[in-house]
Nucleic acid binder design. Structure first.
Lengths: 351, 351
DNA sequence: GGTCGGGCTGGTATCGATTCCATACCGACG
DNA sequence: CGTCGGTATGGAATCGATACCAGCCCGACC
């Protein structure tokens, strides 16, 4: 249903607060004058201005943002849609964006869509209803973005891209980073490298897969398609398939986890099974996460500049709101961080 | 300045979108009828209703939340104020609250105040301006809460409490949990246990300190006040003082980190110095964090039910909005999670 | 002295949705 | 036949802030 009324809220109406009219009356001027005195737009005699300001202070007047937005048909508000706040990656993206936006006087309306495209679409409707000035999102489908763009809302896709050419995007260079990471393993002498990933369809999964393949192609191993373990998003399934993979007699000498969630599961399984890293298994991950620098040995990763991703996206959005133009895609680099989880493969794997 | 105009937003007004009047005209009815047909309040003939619904769909009508809120003088929106989204604790609180609120049709306005009371107060003004139906916050001072309460906004304090008796709160039982944690160390035979904390003034720091002291008092060691290292919030200072403490000849046999931030720093210093946990040093922390179950050995902690903290606070807020009443404080338990970071103290420390 | 223009103020329409009220129609019933 | 109750609809006021416009005063300048 397209217009199910968004739950007309609960509770009682807020207790009446001072309005502009109250301030005006107390200062003995008209609403127009009070407005001018408070906003500083238009003429207001210094003496009158002081009186109005004083009246406002005494009444604890706080202008009603809804009324203001209604009249202005524009709100100093940005919609922010992420997939899962509990994942440090998204939390940092949100923090990065929040810093920039708050500094510019914008308020954030936050929605966590739990990775569901239905929730994502619902959030898009909410944003539109609030007439937000722009939207930042880590998309899980194309539809929400398209819906917003069609309705004239500036949108910036973050981390993943579903609507290339239709809106701005701030991504990381998944291909290059994944290639570097894989090359690193290859240089150490690894040949049986399995990539474990949840998906290979989105720009993230696809890009990382591509980089991984490129590196393998450089040593003539492009055909090793069976070396990719794509498990979907269900943690239990990832757990099961990983465990199965690592328990094989002829298991890979190195694994490449495609993001921090997968990495955590893989690492736990490897540890549980008793594989010593890096002696028995080299381990790399895409997307640095706090624990990766704390476990022993530390995990070799490419670090996504997650906070910067959010900050850049916010800056780009503000720019785009100021002056429309052709959509641009920004791609940030992910530095390779070498820690102790990678080493030469053990000799026993030689045939 | 009380009324600095909240940056009158940037950018151009949103492109005009379909309004209720457009829908009404298209369906050949009045705005009143269209409104009744869409909201379902009041009479509307089935045939007319269908026509209005169709018109709305065709026009892609999305009701303006600002206009609606203005008229209703109430918005289905909750303000959420946390100290640092990058800290998993706050991220989880936010996620927990978000789940409950979204399910009830509420939208979240999020502010991250970076632990600053100035930002906190600014956020309170923003919330008031938006006429939010209620506010959830992890306070860093009393003023924002008091300001909101005085203005009739239902508030729930989370994790910390500055306004006891003035508003609801959802906390954890800091005293009991800290006592349990300390007792655990004592039972293992530790006598020189240092608590490392950033603050001892807020209900969190104070409560944890109290529990720690209670446990020590049970074995007649209540006087060991010098055993508390209170370092403030600056990471470098915590680092320096911790490092100094752990490098002493006669260092404690166990340390108790008062939260996950402090714990991370302490743990890193201990590791850097080369102390083996738990052989050279037993280590416990308040506030479980993902890395604590991944490092070897895992860290013994009391786990704050952070997500539940958020969810319960949200539920409590909704309740309070529905029917006002005396403020209530809910206290959740923190289960002790024993991992490998605690053991009997080494014999060398006997005198 | 009359006109001009700048400083300043208040009245009023407006943003979009909701809601109260007046009106109108219909069948049923006294 | 007149009236009543229930269904249905449109007109108009309202929420709070803003902005346009008309109009005022006053000094300056021709």
């Amino acid at each position: 249903m397209a217009h199910a009324n968004p739950r007309t809220s609960a509770g009682t109406p807020v207790p009446s607060r001072a309005t502009l009219a109250d301030v005006a009356k107390r200062a003995g001027v008209s609403r127009s004058t009070a407005s001018r005195a408070l906003t500083g737009r238009g003429y207001a005699a210094a003496e009158v201005k002081a009186r109005v300001l004083a009246a406002a202070d005494e009444l604890g007047y706080v202008p009603d943002a809804n009324a203001r937005s209604l009249k202005a048909r524009r709100t100093p508000t940005i919609g922010l849609l992420v997939s899962d706040l509990r994942n440090p990656f998204y939390a940092e993206v949100a923090a990065g964006a929040g810093g920039v936006l708050r500094a510019q006087g914008y308020t954030i309306v936050l929605v966590d869509d739990a990775g569901s495209d239905v929730e994502e679409m619902a959030a898009a409707r909410t944003f539109l209803a609030w007439r937000v000035a722009g939207v930042l999102l880590t998309p899980v489908s194309a539809s929400a973005t398209q819906f917003l763009v069609r309705n004239g809302v500036p949108v910036v896709e973050i981390d993943r891209q579903f609507c290339r050419g239709e809106c701005d995007a701030v991504l990381v260079d998944n291909v290059t980073a994944a290639r570097e990471l894989t090359r690193h393993l290859i240089q150490l002498g690894h040949r049986r490298i399995t990539m474990i990933t949840d998906e290979v369809e989105w720009t993230t999964g696809a890009g990382r897969l591509k980089g991984y393949r490129q590196a393998l192609a450089e040593i003539g191993r492009a055909d090793a398609e069976d070396a990719v373990l794509c498990c979907g998003f269900d943690p239990e399934r990832i757990e099961k398939e990983t465990s199965e993979l690592l328990s094989r007699r002829r298991r890979p000498t190195a694994v490449f986890a495609s993001n921090n969630l997968v990495a955590e599961i893989v690492w736990r399984q490897a540890t549980r099974i008793g594989l010593r890293i890096p002696n028995d298994l080299s381990f790399v991950a895409f997307d640095d996460s706090p624990w990766m620098s704390m476990v022993q040995p530390g995990i070799t990763t490419v670090a996504q500049p997650s906070e910067e991703l959010g900050a850049r996206a916010a800056a780009l959005l503000l720019n785009r709101m100021a002056k429309p133009g052709r959509p641009r895609t920004t791609r940030l680099d992910c530095p390779l961080i070498q820690r102790g989880s990678t080493a030469r493969p053990a000799r026993r794997t030689r045939k």
